Simulated scan of single mutants.
Amino acid sequence: MKKTITVVAACAALSVVAAPAQAAPKDPVSALKAKLVPGHGVRFTETVTWSDGTDQREVQDRKGVFQFDRKGVAAFDITIHWDDDDYGRQRAVGVGKVTYHNGGVMPMVLPEGKTWYKVKRFGVPDSYGQIINPAEPRTLAALIKHGKPTASSVTGTITFKDLKQVSPWWAGANAEKSFDGTKVSYTLTLTSAGLVSRVQSSFTATQDGKLATVAVDSRYSGWGSKVSVKAPDPAKVTTDFR
């Protein structure tokens, strides 16, 4: 199965929530801002499921960490494990405005002695990544605005365009403008303190000419704990292929 997908601009299965938004008893945005301290962050694990209506399978599991600055995410380190051996384990490390990729096909395409490939992009590292980032205050505020909050969750839909306007994480993916109308459904689960403990999102995509849905289930823990993400050894980094 190919690992590259192309997002389509229509998703009939996902509908905009018509009920008016209500204020959650605990303010998630204020709760998040209180945790945005440089050198601190949050850890997460997630699973990625692919389905085409007749077949459904888990294609990836991931674990990672976001490191904060006072505005949101300043760095990330994500390890990706595929469900088969074609790609094996991959790793993506983002620092500043760049992302470094390791593993997967890299050993076969990078020059000898180089193990990390650097791209001038900071955001969702691949097409199966969680595009909803609950560590961004503006993103969280938009998800509440577009959704229906309760005491323990927020459920709704948001277009790629609206998400791109508030989320550096998604804007950094550089999705083509032709996909701006695509809708993503989401459910945020909140702790009693108003922090996000889980994000479930899904959108429809084309793969081999067929419609398929990619669903990502992410769980977050240790909000505000000390973390440290560092760029790889420059001697091991390249921007070239063989």
Rank of each mutant, 00 (worst) to 15 (best):
G181Q: 10
A19W: 14
P149T: 10
V119M: 08
C11M: 11
F122M: 14
F203Q: 15
W223D: 01
A175F: 10
D85E: 05
H101D: 03
D86K: 12
L188H: 14
N102T: 02
E46N: 04
T79V: 15
G39E: 10
F203N: 10
A171K: 07
L190T: 04
G103Y: 12
E112R: 14
G156F: 08
K183C: 14
S30T: 07
S30C: 06
V154L: 15
P232W: 06
L14N: 14
A212E: 03
K118W: 11
R242G: 03
E58V: 08
L32T: 00
F179D: 13
D61R: 10
T213F: 01
D180S: 02
P168S: 12
L14R: 15
T159L: 06
T191N: 10
A205G: 10
D233V: 08
F66T: 02
L140R: 12
S218P: 04
K145A: 14
W223M: 03
T187P: 13
K226V: 07
E136H: 13
F160Q: 03
T182K: 10
G104R: 01
K26S: 15
G94F: 09
P232Y: 03
D55I: 02
K120G: 15
K97T: 07
D162R: 15
W82R: 14
A75R: 09
A212N: 08
T47V: 02
G94I: 00
V7C: 05
